[in-house]
Design a protein around this nucleic acid. Structure first.
Lengths: 236, 236
DNA sequence: AATGGAATGCTAGTATACAAGATGGAGCCC
DNA sequence: GGGCTCCATCTTGTATACTAGCATTCCATT
């Protein structure tokens, strides 16, 4: 599957002339990396990306600079640019950070909770169920994101959601692999349902504990995936 | 003080030919922004930076791209690039996120605490006291960073320290202004001393509560600074 | 005095060319 | 057959030129 990635798209990426080229290249590459269409350790050549996107090196370099800042790409001057591997230690640390942030957000959200919030989350759950049934991993991923974002909004800390997003970049890569397993999505939905009930109870401690359990269960995804994608993960 | 910033340096920035130009420009600009030598809302011209650093636009643009990702710079195409203002809502959200992360780190550190950790923190405290007496705000800032980093190391979550660092970028800007007030540094040292005692007790709850109090006290810095630097802060 | 359009000068975004470093393969020698 | 050297080719980093958009200024007209 080494030749996977962007080459699996219908054809060369078509840029929207109304939007900055660098931004479009950034988004396309980020999505490809998160969904593992560009696999960990895969070499990326600036020149190859230029051909693929039909642009010069300038916007490609800008996009690559941003992806390196995001921790998704490793640049080795004069040698090459590679999709960053998934470092297990970083995954563990990211889980710790995400848990700390989202547990605090859940508690704070419970303190400010309103019926409209419950309504919004239930609508989201319905979408999750529909996309899981359809086997649409990407749409399910977006639902999942939206679900947690609503909680951050309810906590009146929407900016913290941005921090969570950057922390969870590693999770997103793993989550996309996990989403290929229907049972995984079903598990997530069940946990999300429990979370809605806890938040609806307006009990900060209950909401915090429930969120903590939810985020801990993602550990199981790694245990499942390592046998299948051993080369994606490095111990350090 | 509008003409402050990089022009206050002894002379034009001298690049080290052994290091990538983009990296050096990035670090120099980041430090200038964090220490408010480049003030919030100050215009930055790519061409002006080229003259200042003696390089072409390429490394300057790379550095600016990274600083924009860090949230320190706002780019308005065809209009200009500006040092980002300090948005109070973002500050509040950053405080929430930092508190969540460092309280969890302190609790975890207490669970793994060793006498060598106490020793390391006490050595750091001695340096803090020395630099505060000398009125060296920058050195004190570095001591402060190192202090919290040791705690993350003790928690065996050093990678989370990177997350804290990106979260606390806003704090760093405020902290540098606050460090010009000697009383502020003295307060910080006293709180750090209490934190060392809490960690040394190996009691996770005590360490967490102490860290929470410590991070809450930084609120007072904002209350002090707003009358002096009202134009640095925006409500949104 | 007010208004509208053109010109100008500034900005960032992008394209292209050059420089320097790293790597791999071929050829030569022992 | 193995080791060493050299060269070609790849890479990223940087320099420079061009393009397009935006804001300001100036001038002509009413």
């Amino acid at each position: 599957m080494g030749q996977a990635g962007l080459q699996q798209r219908p054809d060369t990426f078509t840029l929207d002339r109304k939007l900055p080229a660098a931004e479009q290249v950034y988004r396309a590459l980020r999505e490809a990396i998160l969904t593992c269409r560009l696999e960990p350790n895969e070499a990326i050549s600036e020149n190859r990306l230029c051909s693929m996107f039909g642009v010069s090196r300038s916007p490609v370099r800008t996009a690559i600079t941003r992806l390196a800042e995001d921790g998704l790409i490793d640049i080795f001057p004069q040698r090459g640019t590679f999709v960053a591997p998934i470092k297990l230690r970083q995954v563990r640390e990211a889980q710790f950070a995400r848990s700390a942030l989202e547990v605090a957000l859940a508690a704070e959200a419970a303190r400010h909770w309103r019926d409209a919030d419950t309504k919004a989350l239930k609508a989201n759950l319905a979408r999750q169920e529909r996309h899981a049934r359809a086997g649409d991993g990407w749409a399910f991923y977006l639902d999942n994101e939206s679900f947690h974002q609503v909680i951050a909004q309810a906590a009146r800390m929407e900016g913290v959601w941005g921090t969570v997003q950057s922390v969870k970049t590693l999770w997103d890569r793993i989550g996309h692999m996990a989403n290929r397993v229907p049972a995984h999505m079903a598990d997530i939905i069940a946990e999300h349902r429990a979370l809605v009930e806890a938040l609806d109870s307006r009990d900060p401690k209950r909401a915090a504990a429930c969120m903590k359990r939810h985020l801990k269960s993602v550990d199981h995804a790694i245990a499942r995936l390592r046998p299948l994608h051993g080369d994606y993960f490095v111990e350090e």
